[in-house]
Amino acid sequence: MNRIEYLFKVFTKVEPLLRSQEPFQRPTNVYIPGLAAQPWYEPQNFAWVQQLEEKYQLIQQELLDSCLADKNRFIPYQEPKDFFPDSIGNYDGDDWQTFPFSLYGKKFQENCDLCPVTTKILQSIPRITGMVHFSALTKRSHIPPHCGPFNFILRCQLPLIVPANCELCVAHKSRKLVEGKLLIFDDSFVHEAWNNSDFTRIILLFDLYHPDLTDAEIREFEFIITHDPYIQEVLRNWISNFEKQKYLSSIMNLFKSRTKKLHPYKTGNMILHSGLHYHQVAPIKAQPKEARITLQGHGIFGEGSWQLYW
């Protein structure tokens, strides 16, 4: 049975899922036998890496100019929680954030348009696939041990903003992150990451098809995995978070651009305002154990008077 036939039969549950004999390799979704299995890959063995590393400062500058100016464009990293009990989907922290360019064929066009230089560089990388995004890990945080879904994909990380004491560990072998120096590993092996500094760490993360796969196999794999329920659920989660953050970003940008008008509360005095316009409760200075309590309702104005609903 060839790899394409095996992958199709696994996804359609005709064939049982095989397991790797490597002690630290446990892909959560599919294991394709016969592919070379090693935790780390040496970047110098990939012809395109030198050109990418030479351009890392262009990517870094675009990140600083276009992305970090509006941090609401970053969304929480999230995967489905119900598919695999050992996946990173059970990680609930907000300290791992992502700025997505594409996810298994789905483009986040607004982000691509915001970073045209980075997008063009990414398009020049052969056999790129899967997740493509800026990945931010906030200060004093840890991504716990986990395994990726497939063993036919390699993960690449290009460090862009790297404070001291940032580390990646794959199959219990650790490497320090160095700005502008690519790391390539098989994320079907157990791996984890640390940011033990007081600043946020940001990398460019993207995936590659395994070098043992032929071009014909890749074409078939792309069709099959994009119809996988796991991938579809990942897409739904990311798109939902992206649209939510985009809405929040538009509100925050509007607040920043407009002159704020404050209306102080006075005990016993009613305040009426339109709920259709952007509004917020201004922060107040309160003594310990003090609280602001209001009775809030809605009203309709008609025939010269207000009808209030509580």
Rank of each mutant, 00 (worst) to 15 (best):
E5S: 05
K9N: 15
F11K: 13
T12W: 12
K13H: 12
P23C: 14
L35G: 06
P39Y: 01
P39W: 03
E42S: 09
N45Y: 10
V49F: 12
L52R: 12
L52T: 11
K55H: 10
Y56G: 07
Q57D: 08
L63E: 07
S66T: 05
C67M: 11
D70H: 14
D70L: 10
K71G: 12
I75C: 00
P80K: 05
D86N: 15
I88Y: 07
G89K: 01
N90A: 06
N90H: 06
G93S: 14
W96N: 06
W96Y: 09
T98K: 02
P100I: 02
S102Q: 00
S102D: 04
L103V: 04
Y104C: 07
K106R: 02
Q109G: 09
N111Q: 00
N111D: 03
C112Q: 03
L114N: 12
V117L: 15
T118V: 05
I121M: 11
I121L: 14
L122R: 05
T129V: 11
F134M: 01
I143R: 00
I143G: 01
I143T: 01
C147K: 13
L158T: 07
P159V: 09
P159M: 05
N165H: 13
C166W: 08
E167M: 03
L168R: 08
L168V: 12
V170L: 08
A171E: 04
K176E: 12
L177M: 04
S188V: 04
D198A: 13
F199I: 10
R201G: 09
L204D: 11
L204H: 06
L205C: 05
F206D: 01
F206H: 08
L208T: 10
H210V: 05
D212L: 01
I225G: 08
D228G: 15
I231P: 04
W238T: 15
K244M: 14
K246C: 11
M252F: 10
N253Y: 02
K260Q: 02
K261M: 01
K261P: 00
K261F: 00
H263C: 02
P264V: 06
T267G: 14
T267Q: 09
M270D: 12
I271C: 08
L272S: 02
L276G: 02
I284K: 01
I284V: 03
I284T: 04
K285I: 09
K285V: 10
K285M: 08
P288C: 06
P288E: 02
E290T: 14
E290D: 11
E290Q: 08
A291Q: 08
I293V: 11
L295P: 08
G297P: 06
S305Y: 03
